[in-house]
């Protein structure tokens, strides 16, 4: 009995994984772009980024999903459920991530900018080659959690009838009322998935933290 649940639930998991993958990639991109925008000296860029971040952090994910799926068509933009789900989660997680990226950029010592300027590097090159690589190492420990939060957020797509893990679980439960087995399995699958996501993120963290510490201690010696 629970064997047949499992195969149905794993189909749901495939959908959840697909949405998580698309949303996580887009959210990471949005976070970097938004974070760079928030830290930009350009008034317009900073204003646009701030507006994006405040809107998507200040309202609820479910409200954003409904707005994108039900309201945007009134403005002439119709998205299918999958695209709407990915867009809502990416925009929402990206806004939270952008604030973290901004924090990492501003946490770097000013000397990094000044040294790059002294070397005659243009701002763009400084950002790409000096600031962002260091900010990334700084952010790695948070990135695993960021991915898990995005993965958990995908459960809301069942509100627009996408057959993800939550929705499949809901349907099986409605049919069988075998609540403990069904929801027990759903929760275990989500947990296992989160652990799979977090393992590579933690490995990357271990690998790069060493280098980060080395650079930091070298900087201390120099100081």
């Amino acid at each position: 009995m629970s064997g047949s649940y499992l195969s149905q639930l794993l189909h749901g998991l495939a959908v959840t994984a697909e949405i998580t993958a698309f949303a996580a990639v887009l959210a990471t991109l949005l976070a970097v772009i938004g974070g760079v925008g928030l830290a930009s000296p350009n008034f317009l860029l900073r204003g646009v980024s701030r507006f994006y971040v405040e809107i998507f952090r200040g309202t609820s994910l479910l409200v954003q999903l409904f707005w994108i799926y039900y309201v945007l068509p009134s403005f002439g933009l119709s998205l299918d459920p999958f695209a709407a789900g990915v867009a809502a989660i990416a925009l929402n997680s990206g806004a939270y991530g952008a604030e973290a990226v901004r924090g990492a950029i501003s946490a770097l010592p000013r000397g990094q900018w000044e040294a790059a300027k002294a070397l005659g590097l243009p701002r763009r090159v400084t950002l790409h080659k000096v600031i962002l690589p260091q900010a990334c190492i700084f952010l790695l420990p948070q990135w695993g959690n960021f991915l898990i939060e995005s993965m958990k957020a995908t459960a809301v797509v069942s509100f627009i009838s996408i057959m993800d893990l939550s929705f499949v679980g809901y349907q099986i439960n409605a049919r069988t009322f075998d609540t403990i087995t069904v929801y027990g399995l759903v929760l275990l699958i989500y947990f296992a998935f989160s652990q799979i996501i977090v393992v590579p993120a933690r490995a990357a963290e271990r690998r790069y933290r060493l280098r980060g510490i080395q650079t930091a201690s070298r900087a201390e010696r120099a100081a």
């Binding site: 069942s158 929801y183 759903v186 929760l187 989500y190 947990f191």
Partner: peptide, 15 residues
């Protein structure tokens, strides 16, 4: 912390 709140809501409600 690693599982969605939505699923936990359903679980409690139906349990």
């Amino acid at each position: 912390r690693s599982t969605p709140l939505l699923v936990q809501i359903f679980f409690l409600f139906f349990l």
